[in-house]
Amino acid sequence: MTLAAVLIVSAALIGIGIYGALSQQSFVMLMMGLELMLNGVLLAVIGFWSFGLGGAPEGQLLAIVVMAVMAVEMAIGFALVVAVYRKRQADMTESLTTLRR
């Protein structure tokens, strides 16, 4: 187990996340892609913290901040989905053409 191995795993997670975020049609699946990317970031942060920073507490704090970002992204994202669905019964990105203007 080396830092390079950990980072490659996190790169794989980020790659899959990007694929999901770009390819999925529905909002909620798209958010799964985002979460998966953040998952990879989280792993990379802790990998660096563990192998490269000698356990400096800021590394852990950064991981917590990443998790907070995830929570905020999810909460606001779903709230938007609810609001949009209530107004137009839409749950796919393509149905939101009127937002383009």
């Binding site: 790659g15 899959i16 694929y19 975020a21 770009l22 390819s23 049609q25 796919m92």
Partner: peptide, 16 residues
């Protein structure tokens, strides 16, 4: 339920 599937897959792989 996907769109721009190839592009997405390619982007993901290139990123990785």
């Amino acid at each position: 339920m996907v769109h721009q599937h190839r592009l997405a897959a390619a982007t993901g792989f290139i990123t990785f």
